[in-house]
Every structure is written in C-alpha cells, then in structure tokens.
C-alpha cells in the first residue's frame, strides 16, 4: 500500500530516520554516562523513585487491603483447624517461654558477672514498605524512610525475626533495601554450632546459596546462620536463618524473615563499615581515632580529680 504514496513517504521517512538516529544516540549516551559515572545516574534514579513512589501510596492502600482481605478470607474458611493448631502451639510456646525466662535470668546474671555493656548504637528506625523493585530479576524494596530519618547506605534491615537485606540507595524520604535474595547480595555469615564462615550469595530464588565454606562436612541442615561481622558489612550476630540442602546437594539458607510479604522493616542504626563517599578513592582512608577511644581517654580524668 505504501508504494502508492511513495513521494510523501520518502520525505517522511528521511525526517523520521534523522529523528530516530538522534533519539537512539541520546539514549545510548545516557547508557554510557551511567556506565562511566554510575553514582550520579543512580542518584537521579533514586530521585525519580522518590518523586513517584510516595504518590503511589493512596493507590497502594486499597490493593494491599484487598490482598490482605483475601488472605484473611482464606484463613476464615478453616478457622476451626487453625484454632486447634493455635492452641497446641500455645501450649508448646508456654513451655518455651518458661525456658526463655530462665535463660534470660541466667543470662542477666552472667552479664552482671562479666560487666558487659550493651552496644548503645544498636537502636533502630522502623519504616513501611512502599514499593517493590518491579523487575522479575531484582529483589529490592523501597522504604518510606530516608536520609531525613538519618538512614545511611549499608545499614542492616530486619523484620521482626531475621535479617532481610541492607540499605542500598538513600534519598530524602525514601530508601531502597537490597534483599538477601538479590543477585547482587553477598553477606559474610557464620554457621552457628560449627563456627564455619561462608558467604551468603543471592540468586533470585527464595533461598540464597552458601558459598566458600571451608569444611562443608561440618555443616548440617538445620544449623543456624548468623552474620559474622566480617568485612564490616553488618554487625555481628544478626539472625539470618537455617541451613538447608537443596536437590543439587548445595547448601542454601532458609531465611528466618518472612520474605513472602513485608509490611514493616526495622533498619538497625549500627554502622560498622567504612563509608565510601566518593566514586574515585575506593580504598578507604586511614581510620581516624575512634570516638570510643576518646571517651575512654577522657573518662579517667574526672576520677583523677576526685581522687
């Protein structure tokens, strides 16, 4: 059909081709800039997300409510069974509660004996999950707290039970949590009874892989996985989950946090790692004298005066 108005088309298509070429070039330049100066474009991205996501909240409410209602309805359907189950669980839990109380007392006594001071920096900020990553291959979330709430890159995000991921990307009112299941996530961990260290690597499945275990024979399914604090990525000893064995015989982590549906996450205010502010000097500068040292240096002085 196009052959009949070839004159018109020829002119149009030349113009079109020029336009097309220009647009392609510009978009490609954007990609190159992103590849070369990643942090700046990523900042642009967080700004874009910050501009859009808070506006989504009004629409998010009915949908999440709807999803929850469906969940609730499903559970109403077998309310009797659940009741029985809950009662059994309650009984079991009461036994555990007794045990926990006894342990707590014992723990407190031992702490008292040892003069342990708890780390005062381990406080947390709680945020509401505002959006998903949107991609099938990325596992991340957007929280509604940001640098206005003193959130910093690299802090650990947990749900009530276990580690969920770490903050990667902060803007004023939102921040992005890179989940443990994301491809880019690597966390140094320790497997509890044997003390083996490993790297927990996400592969976009629900259960991240445990890699670089020195003697895998000592690790058994069901062992506890906690963060090791190596490399100063996370504070030491945050619960991650349990070891499990997949069909290929690889060791994976069954995560303690409920990855099915997040609503609230707490972001731990502990920041053991060295911050990288610039893009260029990736080797961190010489550590300055830590504030803890200053404190201890000043503390004896008043004592001396008193004495």
């Amino acid at each position: 059909m196009a052959r009949f108005h070839s004159d018109d088309d020829a002119q149009l298509s030349t113009l079109r081709r020029i336009l097309l070429g220009t647009v392609l070039l510009l978009v490609f330049l954007l990609f190159l800039v992103w590849r070369i100066d990643n942090p700046r474009v990523e900042r642009l991205r967080t700004a874009a997300i910050e501009a859009i996501v808070p506006n989504m909240e009004w629409a998010l409410v009915p949908v999440t409510q709807g999803g929850r209602m469906i969940d609730d309805f499903e559970s109403y359907a077998r309310v009797y069974e659940q009741n029985q189950e809950l009662r059994r669980e309650l009984q079991r839990m009461q036994a555990w509660r007794e045990a926990a109380l006894q342990l707590e007392q014992e723990n407190a006594q031992l702490r008292d004996l040892n003069n342990v001071r708890l780390d005062p920096e381990l406080s947390f900020v709680t945020g509401v999950v505002a959006a998903d990553s949107g991609s099938s291959f990325r596992r991340s979330l957007v929280l509604n707290i940001g640098s206005d709430d003193t959130i910093q890159d690299g802090w650990a995000a947990m749900d009530g039970l276990g580690l969920v991921g770490r903050i990667a990307g902060v803007s004023e009112r939102t921040s992005r949590v890179l989940l443990l299941t994301d491809n880019a996530s690597m966390v140094p961990v320790r497997i509890q009874p044997s003390g083996q260290t490993a790297i927990l690597t996400g592969d976009s499945t629900a259960a991240p892989v445990l890699e670089f275990i020195e003697t895998p024979e000592q690790v058994r399914p069901g062992d506890r996985i906690v963060t090791s604090g190596d490399g100063k990525v996370f504070p030491d000893g945050l619960l991650i989950g349990q070891v499990s064995l997949d069909r290929d015989g690889r060791l994976r982590a069954r995560l303690a946090a409920d990855f099915e549906r997040f609503e609230f996450l707490r972001v731990l205010r502990a920041n053991p790692h060295q911050r990288i502010g610039d893009a260029a000097p990736l080797i961190a500068p010489q550590p300055e004298p830590a504030p803890a040292d200053l404190d201890s240096a000043e503390e004896p002085a008043p004592d001396a005066n008193d004495g």
């Binding site: 996501v53 989504m56 629409a59 998010l60 949908v63 999440t64 999803g67 999950v129 505002a130 959006a131 998903d132 990553s133 949107g134 991609s135 099938s136 291959f137 596992r139 979330l141 989940l179 299941t181 976009s204 499945t205 629900a206 259960a207 990855f259 099915e260 549906r261 997040f262």
Partner: peptide, 18 residues
C-alpha cells in the same frame, strides 16, 4: 502494568518470572 509491578505483593523469591 507498571503500577502492578511496583506493588509490594510478592517481593520474596517466587521462581516464575512474570
């Protein structure tokens, strides 16, 4: 569609990509 994808409904690790 974008909105649906951004909803935090299945953020964990469902294996089947959309």
């Amino acid at each position: 569609m974008v909105f649906l994808k951004l909803l935090p409904l299945q953020s964990g690790g469902s294996n089947l990509p959309w």
